[in-house]
Design a binder for these strands. Structure first.
Length: 242
DNA sequence: AGGCCGATCCTCT
DNA sequence: GAGGATCGGCCTA
């Protein structure tokens, strides 16, 4: 009974064909899904995906010069050219990691960057992983007030923050299959609908700045970025909120 | 609320 | 040898 109660709220594993589609499509579909991190002998850590960005493979026309795959396969990005539904984890600025989900068939390097989660399970462990456990006030209110107070933003709002909260690293997680029940990282569907979706330009890039490839659950308090990037008017009217 | 800055190191040119 | 899909602290207002 305790087992089924623990597993049920995290839903069922996603299927491969879910990811064998263009990244713009997979990005929207991933909103509301759950990322679960399992470590042997530890309780699972889980968060709901509330913000993502799509990066297009070099086979696309026009190309996406902001994508890591833009100049073709290299040792770092080879996972992107492999099969769909795997984790591409890379290090950035010497201190942090970011996690992507691979899309499309093998040979096509589209992917989706996870930019923010809403904490679902293991909030205390997230706080420890983020180094926030020195603050008793934050820890005490974390579980109950995650949505209202904003501890959720501190924990998992940002591509590197969410990796830190879930203990995701390149050495441990780059290339893992997200659809394998024995994998340390899983993507699951508990039936939650994303609702209205905010569409904007992508954050923090220098090339192809104008493309509307960032997707977030409209109004969700865990979405990252400055306030201007969390409102409905950031991009052209035709693609702001759907 | 928003802007600037430094940390810090791996990857590719 | 340059630069980056970031973050947190500090500043101004």
């Amino acid at each position: 009974m305790a087992q089924s109660e623990r597993i049920k709220p995290l839903g069922r594993l996603l299927q491969r064909d879910f990811f064998e589609a263009p990244p713009e499509r997979v990005a929207r579909l991933l909103l509301g899904k759950i990322l679960v991190q399992r470590t042997r002998g530890r309780k699972p850590i889980a968060g709901r995906i509330v913000e993502v960005e799509a990066y297009l493979g070099p086979h696309r026309q026009p190309a996406d010069p902001a994508a890591h795959s833009y100049r073709g396969p290299t040792p770092r990005n080879q996972v992107l050219f492999g099969p769909a539904g795997h984790a591409y984890v890379y290090s950035i600025y010497g201190r942090y990691f970011c996690m992507n989900v691979t899309c499309e068939r093998e040979g096509r390097a589209g992917c989706v960057l996870l930019r923010a989660l809403e904490p679902v399970e293991g909030l205390d462990q997230m706080a420890r992983n983020r180094g926030l456990d020195g603050c008793p006030t934050l820890l005490a209110s974390a579980a109950a007030d995650a949505r209202r107070v904003g501890i959720g933003r501190e924990l998992t709002s940002g591509p590197s923050r969410l990796c830190q909260a879930l203990g995701i690293t390149r050495s441990a997680h780059n290339g893992v299959d997200l659809l394998d029940p024995s994998s340390p990282l899983e993507l699951r569907d508990d039936g939650t609908r994303a609702g209205r979706v905010l569409v904007t330009r992508r954050i923090g890039i220098r090339h192809a700045v104008e493309l509307p490839l960032r997707f977030a659950i409209a109004g969700n308090g865990c979405v990252s970025g400055p306030k201007s990037m969390r409102r409905a008017s950031v991009f052209s009217p035709s693609c702001s909120v759907r």
